[in-house]
Amino acid sequence: MQSIVVEHISKSFGDVQAVKDVSFEVAPGEIFGLLGPNGSGKTTSIRIILDIYEPDGGQVAILGGPMDESKKNLIGYLPEERGLYQDVTLEVCLQYLATLKGMSREEIDAKLPAYLEQFELSEYRKKKVKELSKGMQQKAQLIATLIHDPQVIIVDEPFSSLDPVNTQLVKDILKEQRAAGKTIMMSTHQMNQVEQLCDKIILIDHGNVLLYGGLQEIYERFATNQLLINTSQPLPEALPGVARIEQLNTMIKLTPEPGITPHDLLVTLVNQGIALNAFEIATPSLDEIFIQVVQGSNNGNGKKEIQHEQDA
């Protein structure tokens, strides 16, 4: 059974249509990436899923049905707009937010110290929230997201304001939660994190779905026959069967002419006597796919892609 099923949701605010006919599914034990440029409709989609906004059309099923009071307690949410009560102590703030997730005082007392310890916030628990750094507040908010052991975790830009150590900590936690069978939906602009964590993604822009599917499947769909090589020798200006030669940071990217395979290029390089330190097929990064799809959409080429993906 899918944990989140979104079917043809749409939402407008006045004349602005924030979400148009968006559909996707997220399964337990999966990290799902919700991607899109700023103002693309990601946050509105999340709010509809969480029943914060009522959709104009379409429907959402969470954990097998519509959202209700008890299901809210099974969802952990880290909003993009971080917010905690500033004038109370960290401990009081987290206790209150946990009670709103249906936890009893005893449960909170049993679990909160361990979380504070894990996020290295124990010594700050009696400090007012406003006295904590931005990164500490971010970690505190993550505790509020996870403390009630939610079945569905929705995190919006979970790595913002975190240093590399804490970024790794959060990544490890998300992986642990996935391994425990939790459903995780993550919205972020950090494509490298998506590449490392997500099993499936959806890319939306201007409320439209541009791309949807498994990460590996998407890589394969956007794969080219370009090659990345590293050599200590200078390359000739032109190579037979090579349309373009680009010098990257440490690598050289070769774009073959139509009908030329990577294997043909390798043979050409060897025949030219070029000593290779590295040779690999160039897979487009998610960043590149993102830019390609979004720019294609803005140039009017995206509509076909949407329809294709939605049909798929």
């Binding site: 914060i52 809210k72 949410y77 937010l97």
Partner: peptide, 14 residues
Amino acid sequence: EKENRVMEMLLSSV
């Protein structure tokens, strides 16, 4: 609560 941006957190619970 609106200024503190805690509102969205609250609305996901209540």
